Amino acid sequence: MKRTGFAAAHVGMLLWALLIAVSFSAAAQVSQAIDPILLTGLRLLCCALVFLPLLLFKGDTAMTARGLLGHAVLGMLLALYFGSLFEALRYTSAVNTGTMFTLVPLLTLLFEAILTPDSRLKQRVLPMLVAAAGAVLLVLKGAGPGELPSLYAVSVYAVGCLAMALYSPLSQRLKANSLKGRGPVGMTFWNMLFGALFLLVFCGFSGGWRSALLLSGSDIWWLIYLALFATLTTFWLLHRAIGVIAPSSVISYIYLSTLFITLFHWLWLRQSPRALEIFGALLVGVGMLALLISSRDAMPAQQSALKASGHVSGD
């Protein structure tokens, strides 16, 4: 299996950040009358079906019982995250969910320290804190001036953010053990499939499947878009970068996503930048630049460790 290069992994994550930025607003376009668990289950199932032919072509279908369990756990984390996002969007704005997501890289760093301890972790703490502070200044606002998001929305999405923070470090840990040798296509397919099954089974018991009758043509279009670009593509890019870049550095690209969201409001919606937002944008830029430099400095040692373990990540 061909290994993804350092530069290619970062370019891919730059595209990831842009797709994530668009996804928050795209998810908000789907009718709020439809059960969010059903929406998420259909979204993940669509992703898995799209990747099935490629999986069969690559012959990455061999599976052990431990491998199935690993994918099931990762699929559950995906189900928790996406389900919480759709539910939170019922009670708060896409901007607020984007703001909360800025905490995920710091939580990822914590889980990374527990699951894959590394002496270089401390080099990423300060750059991530700087970028996180800038991201919070960029988008921390409610639906109106001085309005904060609802406590329920914050609580629900906090569970999803914890699940997403655990996803990348746990993926790396499993890819070195029960899922060793599994490429981005296989990881994406099986994780999405299990996530979809969990959500659709729950939806069957909860009665949320009945809201499928309310799906309009517009809702179906947005679901297809979210499945192909905001879910399938982003998670393929994520798994493509994991192993080449540390999990916490990979997910830190969400800070650039936050910056893209703000630039959209400034340039496209013609909203006047506030002083704190400008300062926040500078902090994000400085933090991400420092994170990139520290990531490059750690590259030789990291790739040596990958060669020693026989683990590769690529197409």
Rank of each mutant, 00 (worst) to 15 (best):
S252N: 07
S93P: 01
S171R: 09
A65W: 13
L223A: 04
A301E: 12
L55I: 04
S171C: 13
L292R: 01
I114C: 04
I37T: 15
P127E: 11
I114W: 14
A153C: 09
R210I: 06
Q303V: 02
M299S: 09
F229Q: 07
F260D: 02
P127H: 09
V130Y: 06
F24W: 12
S23T: 13
L85H: 04
H71D: 05
G70P: 03
S84G: 13
I251M: 05
S171M: 13
L38G: 09
S252W: 02
S313D: 11
Q172R: 15
L78V: 13
G287L: 01
L214P: 00
F260K: 01
V11T: 00
F229E: 04
C47S: 15
G204Y: 11
V312K: 12
A153I: 11
L68R: 12
P117R: 07
L69R: 12
A143C: 02
L138D: 05
N96Q: 14
S31D: 14
G186H: 01
V50H: 07
S119W: 11
P117W: 03
R90F: 03
F235E: 04
A132G: 04
P105I: 05
T188N: 13
A21C: 10
I37C: 08
S309A: 15
G160P: 09
S211Q: 05
V244A: 04
G12I: 00
S31H: 10
T99V: 15
E147Q: 12
T233H: 06
I245K: 03
S309V: 05
G204F: 08
I37S: 14
A301M: 09
G208F: 10
S309I: 09
I114G: 01
F235W: 12
K307G: 02
A21M: 09
S252C: 04
F194Y: 13
F205M: 12
P149K: 10
A8H: 01
L200E: 12
V104K: 02
G287D: 00
R210P: 00
L223R: 08
T4H: 06
R173V: 07
F189N: 05
G146P: 00
V95F: 02
D60T: 10
K141I: 00
M288V: 02
S211P: 00
A153E: 08
H265D: 14
Y167K: 04
A8P: 01
G144N: 08
W266I: 11
W221M: 14
A246C: 02
I224R: 08
Y81E: 08
A298N: 09
S218Y: 13
A308T: 09
F264R: 01
L19N: 04
V185D: 02
L232F: 06
V250G: 00
Q271Y: 06
L226W: 06
P53L: 06
S249C: 06
A305K: 10
T234W: 09
L126F: 15
L170G: 09
Q172M: 13
L89P: 03
M128A: 12
V185S: 05
T64L: 05
A153M: 11
L276M: 06
A27I: 12
A212S: 14
L44C: 04
T258E: 00
P117V: 07
Q29G: 01
T64N: 04
L223K: 10
E147M: 07
V201P: 10
I278N: 00
G5H: 07
F194E: 06
M299T: 04
F6N: 02
S93I: 06
A8V: 03
